[in-house]
Structure formats: C-alpha cells, structure tokens
C-alpha cells in the first residue's frame, strides 16, 4: 500500500470521528432522533399486536421517526413491561404497552416490578372485546350447555387463555364461582395459540380477545358470549355477561408507559403523537376490526386510573382466593 494512502485514511477517520462528535447533542427538544421501540408484550399477529401496530404506525408519522414493534410475549403480558422497567433507559426510545396484568400480577405473586413506582405512564388508549368460543363441532350450543355439563363433570371443562392471571383467567374464574362450577384453565401464549387449541379441540373452550373473529365468521368457531357492556354490533346473537346473569363487564383497558423517570417533555411529545393516532380514522377502523373502541385518557387521568384499577383488582383477587400469601 502506498504511503499517502495512510494519510488519507487517517484524515478520513478523523473526519468520521469529528462528525460523530457533532451529531450527538441529543436532548428532549430534538426528541425523537432515532427509531423508538414499542414493546408489545403479546405474540405478533394477535389483536393487541395488530392494533398496536396500526396505532404505532400512525403515531410514527406525527413523531417523524419509525416506531419498531418488539414482541416480548409471556407471563400474561407482563414479561415485556417488566423487562422494560428493569433494563431500559428512560430516554423515550423504549416504551411498552401496559396490559392490566401489570397491575394484577403483583397482587398474586412475587414479581420484579412495582406498578406504582416503576413506570412513567404516558397515555391510555383503548380496551378489548373479550368472548368465549368453542369449536363448531362441540356439544356446547350455548353457555347454558357448558354450565350444565360442568355441573355434572366438575373440572372436566377446560378453557384456553392467553396467560395465567389475564382478565380472561380472572373473568372465567369469577363466572365459574358465580355459577357454582369448576373449570380448568390452560394458559397459552396469546391469540394465535388459543385459536389453534380450541379449533383442534385440545381445550373445550377459548376465552380470548377478538382474534377468533375470522374463525367465527367462517363458522369454524361458535361464539358463546361476549364480555362487553352491550352486545357487539358484529355479533348481535352473542349474549353479554349481564344478560347471562353475571353482573360484570370485562374489557381490560390498556395504555402505554415508559420506564420510571422520563423527561416530562418527552412524555408530552409521545402523548400528543399517540393521541393523534387514536383519533386517526384509519386507526379507528383497524380497532373496529377487533371490536376495540378508543378509550382516551391523558397522562394525569391515566395515573389516577392506575390507582383505581389496582384497588378494584385487589378486591376481586382476594374474593377469588388468588392473592399472594
């Protein structure tokens, strides 16, 4: 190699280093200067994942940086937020969807996070439509059939949920308690798996959010009930919990949060971007595909809501005898 080559190279390297020095002065003002990671603590392809992708896509247009979805499934949707609370920097480049299990699980067992302290809550977004389905070939034509069968065969009725301690698990146990029957829960890792489980009749029932929709539409699954306040416009034949005599509504509202100690300016930027996103007609349309309705709460209201939910959850958990010792 000729000698002048070395000089040129050294010069080029200097240049690169200088350029790097100049471009680092990142602050809350410039935020965001690089892609943001949004942790979705559910497997890719489920209803939460797809609706969060739609919301993130719309929000990224407002922020001017891509939002990368990181699916960290497991633990009923708590693995993702727990990982974030433990390991991510509060720089606004890692945020997570916060499912209700983040508040519920600490009441049930030892966990590594404290919902009151470890998160910076940003914005509350929406909730789910839950439903209980069974295979179209199943003997159960209505929820009444399930109750009768379960009374005769305690513990024989199995149901697939997207994880232990999810609203689906708690809700089913409450229903079982009220009807005086015993059901057996089988925790899976999200919608794709519970669909396959009930379709293949590995479990008798499936309790999940509307990931079952294409299969119900195709007549492969039968919807036995929905857990919303009123009947779903898409499935007018499916009764609500109230109609079946269980005075409850379950919709597991959710929002997003970052690790504790985020700059309020960054929180405000994220809040504004995601607020615009849930108002975006395209997002509303995607949400409607899963029977989700935007349920906006700003940062302050979300914080209050967290306290309220934790209290009401505590009561339910204690009644069911699931509280940690």
């Amino acid at each position: 190699m000729p000698r002048y080559g070395l000089k040129t190279i050294a010069f080029a390297a200097m240049h690169a280093v200088m350029g790097a020095l100049l471009s680092t002065a990142a602050s809350a003002q410039d935020y965001p200067t690089k892609p943001i990671t949004l942790i979705v603590p559910w497997p890719a392809g489920g209803s939460t994942d797809i609706s969060m992708r739609a919301i993130a896509d719309s929000a990224s247009k407002v922020l001017g940086q891509p939002i990368v979805i990181d699916n960290k499934a497991g633990g009923g949707g708590t693995v993702g937020p727990a990982t974030m609370a433990a390991a991510a920097k509060p720089d606004g480049y890692t945020i997570s969807q916060i499912p209700i299990t983040v508040f519920r699980l600490p009441l049930m067992q030892e966990v590594s996070w404290d919902p009151a302290k470890d998160f910076t809550y940003i914005i509350h977004l929406t909730g789910y439509t839950f439903g209980v389905t069974t295979s179209a070939e199943s003997q159960f034509k209505s929820w009444k059939d399930v109750v009768e069968f379960a009374k005769a065969n305690p513990g024989k009725v199995t149901y697939a949920t997207p994880g232990a301690g999810t609203s689906l698990h708690i809700g089913m146990e409450q229903i079982a308690g009220m009807s005086g029957i015993k059901l057996t829960q089988v925790p899976f890792k999200g919608g794709a798996e519970t669909n396959a489980a009930v379709l293949g009749q590995h479990t008798m029932l499936q309790a999940d959010s509307t990931g079952w929709r294409p299969l119900v539409d195709a007549g492969k699954l039968r919807l036995l009930m929905v857990w919303t306040g009123s009947r779903s416009p898409n499935y007018p034949d499916a009764p609500t919990l109230k109609e079946l005599g269980y005075p409850m509504v379950y919709d597991s509202p959710f929002g997003i949060a970052g690790p504790k100690g985020m700059d309020p300016k960054i929180v405000a930027k994220l809040h504004d971007a995601f607020k615009k996103a849930v108002e975006d007609p395209a997002v509303v349309a995607t949400l409607a595909k899963y029977d989700m309705v935007p349920n906006y709460k700003n940062t302050e209201d979300y914080k209050k809501f967290v306290v309220e939910v934790t209290e009401s959850e505590r009561k339910v958990i204690e009644t069911l005898g699931l509280a940690k010792k």
Binding site: A44, G45, I50, N71, A196, R213, P214, D217
Partner: peptide
Amino acid sequence: LGIPPNVVMALLLGAFVIHGLQPG
C-alpha cells in the same frame, strides 16, 4: 386459518390486516 406459525408470519398477518384483509 389466520393462525401465524411464527413471528415472521405474524408480521405478514399484520401486513394483511393493515391493508384491510383478514386471513382466515
């Protein structure tokens, strides 16, 4: 069936849904 067997397929499912299609 609309059941994604792996993460990559799930991303494809997302692409379908964003385009207003529902694999199933």
